[in-house]
């Protein structure tokens, strides 16, 4: 049960939402954006979060569109995990994103939770951030002064902290249309089905006809307070033969990158680091199997 009273605002447009947010900010009042609420509502029920104002995005039309725009997919921030998982366009052109959406929480959570809400809340165990970072996704953000585009890697700045300010609204996420020969995979490790990821790893791999690596990208959650992308090794692996040793090199790089995992009750730093290795290995292996 929510204990502290708050004012609920239900704007019908993004502009109105931004105006409401900036009013609250100017008045020095704590305000939260509400999308699907799958993280915010439990936090409020537990009394961990008690904003004075809530601005709901659930009455803004058109925030849930998915469309192809040239070599990009433009996905509305209000798109639910379920819609993303079931979208034929996304399945065809960015299957790693549908695979990720399909493994979040459970059916009911996926029916209500949104892509934008997950990005904005940015739990270190969230599944989208590492995948968006590896995809070099771009986030469209509307602020009182206008619109800006921020690369996903620049959105996730620190533990549960994004670069969005309190008066900004994330409206759209743009991800690249992946070449059809790309092998992709997102795998995660949870205590029970539907639980938070202890570790999650995503990989996109393209092969040359001679079975060497044309390109590889890897993104990981659980390795650090922010998503880890294996940028350093990704370039050096291009042109290398893809075999078990290749997979192991990526896994080892992932392990090295996991220098600051967020320890939790059932997964201390050492264990988490090892799981980063294991799940990166599994993600890359699966991506390899799926690459043409």
């Amino acid at each position: 049960m929510i204990r502290a009273p708050f004012q609920l605002h239900r704007p019908h447009s993004i502009d109105e939402a931004v105006r409401l947010l900036s009013q609250c900010v100017q008045n020095g009042e704590d305000v939260k954006l509400l999308a699907g609420g799958q993280s915010l509502m439990p936090s409020m029920n537990l009394g961990l979060v008690a904003p004075a104002h809530i601005v709901s995005l659930n009455h803004v039309a058109g925030l849930d569109s998915i469309r192809r725009d040239g070599d990009m997919l433009a996905i509305g921030a209000g798109t639910t995990h379920h819609a993303l998982a079931e979208s034929e366009v996304v399945q065809a052109h960015c299957p790693i994103l549908s695979e990720t959406a399909a493994c979040i929480g459970d059916v009911q959570v996926r029916n209500r939770g949104t892509l934008g809400g997950s990005i904005g809340h940015f739990d270190p165990a969230a599944d989208y951030p590492p995948v968006l970072v590896l995809l070099d996704a771009a986030c469209q953000i509307v602020s009182p002064s206008g619109e800006r585009t921020v690369a996903a890697k620049d959105v996730f700045v620190d533990y549960m902290t994004t670069s969005l300010s309190a008066d900004e609204v994330l409206t759209e996420i743009r991800v690249p249309v992946l070449p059809s020969d790309t092998g992709t995979a997102y795998v995660k490790f949870t205590r029970v089905e539907g639980g938070f990821a202890i570790v999650g790893a995503g990989a996109c791999l393209r092969l040359n006809p001679d079975n060497t690596c044309r390109s590889i990208r890897v993104g990981i959650c659980g390795a650090a307070p922010v998503p880890v992308r294996l940028t350093a090794i990704e370039d050096t692996l291009t042109g290398k033969a893809v075999d078990d040793a290749f997979v192991e090199m990526v896994a080892a790089a992932a392990y090295e990158s996991a220098h600051d995992p967020v320890a939790e009750l059932h997964a201390d730093a050492d264990y988490k680091r090892e799981m980063v290795r294991v799940f990166t290995r599994r993600a890359v292996k699966t991506a390899w199997e799926r690459a043409d």
């Binding site: 205590r191 029970v192 089905e193 639980g195 938070f196 009750l265």
Partner: peptide, 8 residues
């Protein structure tokens, strides 16, 4: 969330 009960 942290007292995890087994699911189906």
């Amino acid at each position: 969330m942290d007292y995890t009960l087994p699911t189906a």
